[in-house]
């Protein structure tokens, strides 16, 4: 942990990025405390207003306070993104371990199917899921898991192929351990490092994807305060009330940029020290 901090503090950009990310995590944790209003509370006397003393960031087309909605939106996205990445990690690791350790037919079939999914533009996958099952938090997680798992599986497979040839795997096989034990107790802990770094990078991508899904109407169903769907809704009123699209757009951009700059700075510093 200390190493990470000293690495990050070496780069001003990474430090600034970390500050942005920590800011949003703070906002998400303390959302109910710092939010001035209920994000769902409608005020028909104050519709489509600009920033004022009463509503610091203005209101949307239903008179809901934008500050409250942006604050609670941070909660939505910062819960959904890590959960989706964890699910993708679970599916991808299992597939990668089985393909890499079993080899032969299993490997061939699993990897061909994953290649097929990777040939698929992710956006198309989202649209088809939108078409087939509609919008909900679970579907967001499913969409991102399907889009992300093949990449993780590939990485885990290549690590497994390498680790499989080590002596301690042969030893475990001689002991008569079952394949699951070997995959998850012997191989996985030794492939852990690169997988975690990869997963960190994926959180930024997941936030990006969740925003896009929300914008396309596959996010949380209304009236939940989801940044992407706030933009999609405000898009209709952009000429009379630019604030309703500006704040959520700024919020998601800053979060994704923060996450990516941080990951990038970290990677650069790590490679420099190596």
């Amino acid at each position: 942990m200390r190493d990470i901090f000293s690495l990050v503090s070496a780069s001003k950009v990474a430090l600034a990025a970390l500050a942005i990310v920590l800011f949003w995590i703070f906002v998400a944790i303390f959302a109910p405390v710092i939010s001035p209003y209920d994000p769902l509370e409608q005020d028909s006397t104050a519709v489509n207003q600009g920033p004022s003393a009463k509503h610091l960031l203005g209101t949307d087309d239903l008179g809901r306070d934008l500050l409250a909605r942006v604050i609670h939106g941070a909660r939505v996205i910062l819960v959904l993104a890590p959960v989706s990445v964890l699910c993708a990690l679970l599916v991808g690791t299992t597939l990668g371990l089985s393909a890499g350790y079993s080899g032969g037919m299993v490997d061939e079939v699993v990897m061909r199917i994953l290649d097929g999914i990777m040939a698929f533009p992710a956006i198309l996958l989202y649209l088809i899921i939108l078409f087939a099952v509609g919008a909900s938090a679970i579907n967001v997680v499913i969409a991102i898991t399907i889009a992300g798992a093949p990449g993780i599986a590939r990485l885990v497979r290549s690590l497994t192929l390498d680790i499989r040839t080590r002596e301690y795997i042969a030893a475990a096989e001689l002991r008569g351990e079952n394949p699951f034990y070997i995959m998850f107790v012997e191989i996985f802990p030794n492939a852990w490092g690169p997988i975690i770094v990869d997963a960190m990078l994926r959180v930024g991508y997941a936030v990006f994807a969740i925003g896009t899904l929300g914008f396309l109407g596959l996010g949380l169903p209304p009236p939940a305060p989801d940044w992407g769907s706030m933009v999609a809704r405000g898009r209709t009123y952009i000429w009379i009330n630019p604030w309703a699209v500006l704040w959520p757009s700024l919020a998601i951009s800053s979060l994704v940029v923060g996450l990516n700059l941080f990951a990038d700075g970290l990677r650069e510093e790590v490679t420099r020290y190596q």
């Binding site: 930024g204 990006f208 925003g211 896009t212 914008f215 992407g228 933009v231 999609a232 898009r235 952009i238 630019p242 699209v245 500006l246 757009s249 700024l250 998601i252 951009s253 994704v256 940029v257 996450l259 990516n260 700059l261 990038d264």
Partner: peptide, 17 residues
């Protein structure tokens, strides 16, 4: 990195505004 990380819909909104 900033222009790439910004989601497309947010970029579009900023440009419109």
């Amino acid at each position: 990195l900033i222009t790439t990380s910004t989601p497309e819909f947010a970029t579009g909104i900023f440009l419109i505004l």
